[in-house]
Amino acid sequence: MKNSPLYKGSLTTIIMKLLEENGRMYGYEITQKVKKTTNGELNITEGALYPALHKLEAEGLLDVEVAKVDNRMRKYYKLTESGKKETVNRLEELEEFIRNMQTLVNPKTNPDLQF
């Protein structure tokens, strides 16, 4: 993952958003999806992805399904009912954060902040 606290703070929201769109996904699939969507700009490492997934699972926001695929077991993650609700909240929160940041970084677009 890009070495920035800004990205790190949004990792769980990114994961939840992807699961909301795709139903169920496995770890490697999530890393590739993020990489592809951001044209290689954002690269989630194993050391960041799996702890985030396990934390979300422990919080009851994700459910796990295990299936045998090509000589090995694969863990799929999907949102629980409370996970779906939480995704909506976190996305709203992230959007608000982005709006506020844009206003602060680029105040010309917001007449209220012009002195």
């Binding site: 496995y26 490697y28 090995r72 077991m73």
Partner: peptide, 17 residues
């Protein structure tokens, strides 16, 4: 075993890709 399954799959999928 529950985390190893996940790591084995990650490495194997990467290699296969």
């Amino acid at each position: 075993i529950d985390i190893r399954y996940e790591m084995v799959d990650h490495i194997a999928t990467d290699l296969e890709t």
